[in-house]
Design a protein around this nucleic acid. Sequence first.
DNA 1: ATTATTAATCAACTTTTTTTGATACATAAA
DNA 2: TTTATGTATCAAAAAAAGTTGATTAATAAT
Lengths: 106, 106
Amino acid sequence: MELIKNANELNEDAALDFYEKMFSALADKIRLKIINEISQSPNMNLCVCDLEEKLELQQSKLSYHLKKLVDANILIPEKHGTWNYYRINEEQIQVVLSKDTCCKIF
Amino acid sequence: MELIKNANELNEDAALDFYEKMFSALADKIRLKIINEISQSPNMNLCVCDLEEKLELQQSKLSYHLKKLVDANILIPEKHGTWNYYRINEEQIQVVLSKDTCCKIF
DNA sequence: ATTATTAATCAACTTTTTTTGATACATAAA
DNA sequence: TTTATGTATCAAAAAAAGTTGATTAATAAT
């Protein structure tokens, strides 16, 4: 998945693919909550177990949604020992969404 | 469906509903193409039969997708005699999406 | 009035997405 | 090395979204 800032270089079909994937990833309450929780966390990242507790979701469900966000290049995974942390790819998201929307989601 | 510019007044649950609906409406290639076609049309509006021809889609399928966009307040329907025209609610879409993204989609 | 055109809606069907519980795998601790 | 912890992945089930063809309703033309 390419960075959005290169979207101008994409042909029309690729642009459609890109935006469809991006919007699909954002089109879900659980995933919007994940983004929101991470953005409000002290270090701007959370591990699966943190999110599991904060959002009261079972682990496999969380993994499913995290994968969607990673596939859309909205979240970036970081392995710290046993823990898998996720942080927001702000560059990616800020070019698609307006400031207003970012403020509301983040 | 409220206008996005009132989004700051929404409580968190309502905001989640709002963005989920908005992103869901945009998360589909056919619907992105509809928005694109309308924005490129001379009068900034098209009727169902125009879109049917331009996008080579059957009428009931088109109606289904147009309804999604109207429900999300992204398109505004206008009846002109027998024809149903649709135009983009730019206010709504521009507050959610960045300029870059609007340019690419429109 | 009858016929033709434009477009929404409906029900049945297909496809995609999401959920669930189980399993597997890696790292860390005992 | 055994055990515990954190997390990804898988297959089956459930739910949601999209497609299709037919029907309906409204307006316009004959």
